[in-house]
Amino acid sequence: MQKQLEVKHASVSYGKQEVVCGVSFDLEQGDIGCLLGPSGCGKTSLLRAIAGFEPLTGGEILLHGRSVSRPGATLAPEKRRVGMVFQDFALYPHLTVERNVAFGLRGQRGKQRHGRVEELLDLVGLAGLQKKYPHQLSGGQQQRVALIRAMAPRPDILLLDEPFSGLDVELREQLAREVREILKRESVTAILVTHDQLEAFALADAIGVLGEGRLRQWDAGYDLYHTPQDRFVADFIGQGAMIPGRVLAGGHVETALGSFKGLFVNAVSQGQAVELLLRPDDVIHDDASKFQLEVVDKVFQGAEYLYTLLLDDGSEILCLVQSHHDHAIGEKIGVRLHIDHPVAYPLET
């Protein structure tokens, strides 16, 4: 089957500075991908390269099998059949909702155009607001108008540039789920750019983590969290701590909290010093455990406390405990490990 989007070794540079370096991934028709990373990681530049606003300095981008960007050859954005939703929505303040949505439907007959606009307004529950102007809408409504305006011409791919960051925190998650439902119902191929991992988890089928212009890992959210392929991804996704360990025979890792059958992202040799990733949910509170650790910090999070515990060797681990287990700083509590994915990284020397 033909891929909807193929990005092959794409590079983008501003002057001498390369902000996207050799990124490759692809999306099937109907897939929702996400480019996730801290600010300045190059994710927006890559998105703008896919839209056609930035030229490539290396590699190639194919849309629906057609090469649209190569170094020295950039197809103009208006000829790509891409739809884009911007962080600030970029609605046209001088046009009504209806005319905003119909903006990309030039060349269609009036009746057909009208039908498409009505259909989309119904889809996002904005029927009846046709004649309103953008400044008369709430933030969430504006967001939905921007979304269906981009979807109206049935683009080959929909690009979403931090589409939720202008909204209230409470609204974001709800909208992210709604948007996913809408995209899936219309079977739209889409890429989301965000720095918010919860948004990425809520919306995307596959997530690429970008760091310093490089694609670190392309995976489902679950795998990014539990089996991060490098330290950068491990640090960026979720919370967690590293504890020192040593590789034993048979691929086991021995730590101060017991030994585990390790998953290694790099080749390791027996006896090598490694670090084991511990997520807060890998550490279970158990008063009967033989490991009794001192509480050095605690953060109340409502249903849970996030405790920071001190190991004998001076490293610290995080532990998520139901909040009726209220322990004071300095007290010792018992923990045991329950790790499904004991990921170990060779210690950098």
Binding site: P77, E78, A90, P153
Partner: peptide, 13 residues
């Protein structure tokens, strides 16, 4: 916002 111009480009203008 440069975005309003960019949107118009992506919508085929």
């Amino acid at each position: 916002s440069i975005c309003v111009l960019d949107v118009s480009r992506t919508l085929g203008n």
